[in-house]
């Protein structure tokens, strides 16, 4: 069952801004699910991909199941947003990869003219044994600092599964962003979590809480966060890794750049090890742009502002 893949122009332009392949997003046969406020705009299933969705008063509920052993070659596009300047949206995605399934999901959340918008997302993901999921979520909150975006994720990784999770907000304003992510890993499961955020003004407030429980033997995790607090914005990043089993291994890597008066960056790594043969490490760097990087680029003819912009783009790319 499918519907016409017609994305509103505002969705397309913001997706383009965030670097999506918008031609592919609109191509026939590409699996996708697109919703605006509580309206389902378009969806497309593919072989081995089950998709069930229903709308309710304030949002949309969607369930994706990639069947056992199925490898979906094309990316699955998800697009959610509010195209008015005010409103509320609740998205309830449930994403399940059965045993040995593989998929890549490219998600886009957009609020291009947000002035007073609240977007809440409660995502549940289950990765079956030896499955692989790459999930990239790119946001665009417009230029008016008027979005309040509150995504929560609960993820369970079964034995031998792999999850690559990337969250990017590097265009436009942020408004208020608060992410809560909790992951639980079974034996030999592996997760890589990456956050890339740039604030632009004093009204931008970012709080990210990533928590990984390494419950299974030889489970491994990496939490990598890159943020630039610019124009008086504030960024708070908390990465927590708890290692509970033999051979469990985790690392938290946080880098935050602070540019301009009133900008604030704060990082709290929490590491907890409850097994003598487990190990968790962390590193953090918070502060001004590296002087040597700046001077190097200036010796190539870039002004201080151009050099700073170049460095920030690299860090959050």
């Amino acid at each position: 069952m499918s519907q016409n893949n017609a994305l509103p122009k505002k969705f397309i332009s913001s997706a383009k801004k965030c670097g999506f392949d918008t031609a592919l997003m609109q191509a026939a046969g590409v699996p996708h699910f697109y919703a605006e406020s509580n309206k389902i705009l378009s969806f497309q299933k593919t072989a081995g991909l089950e998709m069930k969705a229903q709308s309710f008063k304030e949002g949309v509920k969607i369930k994706l199941i990639v069947k056992k052993g199925v490898k979906i070659k094309k990316p699955i596009f998800l697009c959610f947003g509010i195209l008015k300047n005010q409103g509320k949206q609740i998205i309830l995605p449930e994403i399940i990869l059965e045993e040995k399934a593989e998929a890549k999901i490219l998600a886009h959340c957009t609020f291009p003219i947000a002035e007073k918008i609240t977007h809440r997302m409660e995502t549940v993901m289950k990765l079956g044994k030896n499955s692989r999921l790459s999930y990239q979520e790119k946001h665009y909150h417009g230029e008016n600092f008027g979005a309040e975006v509150l995504p929560n994720f609960k993820v369970l990784l079964e034995r031998g599964s792999f999850f690559n999770n990337e969250f990017i907000l590097d265009q436009g304003s942020v408004g208020k962003l608060k992410i809560n992510l909790e992951m639980e890993l079974k034996k030999e499961a592996l997760v890589e979590i990456t956050n890339k955020i740039v604030t632009r003004g004093e009204k931008d407030k970012v709080e990210i809480f990533d928590k990984v429980l390494l419950r299974g033997e030889n489970s491994k995790s990496l939490i990598k966060s890159r943020a630039a607090a610019i124009g008086g914005g504030s960024v708070f990043l908390q990465g927590e890794t708890v290692a509970l089993a033999k051979g469990a291994c985790g690392h938290i890597d946080c880098q935050e750049i602070v540019i301009g008066k009133k900008s604030i960056a704060k990082a709290i790594p929490i590491v907890e090890v409850c097994h003598p043969e487990a190990r968790v490490t962390h590193e953090a760097s918070v502060g001004k742009v590296n002087q040597k990087e700046l001077e190097t680029l200036m010796t190539r003819g870039l002004s201080e502002e151009e050099a700073t912009d170049f460095i920030v783009k690299g860090v959050v790319r």
Partner: peptide, 10 residues
């Protein structure tokens, strides 16, 4: 520079 800077993501 004698010890060139490194650039993440560039």
């Amino acid at each position: 520079f004698q010890e060139p800077a490194i650039f993440e993501g560039i």
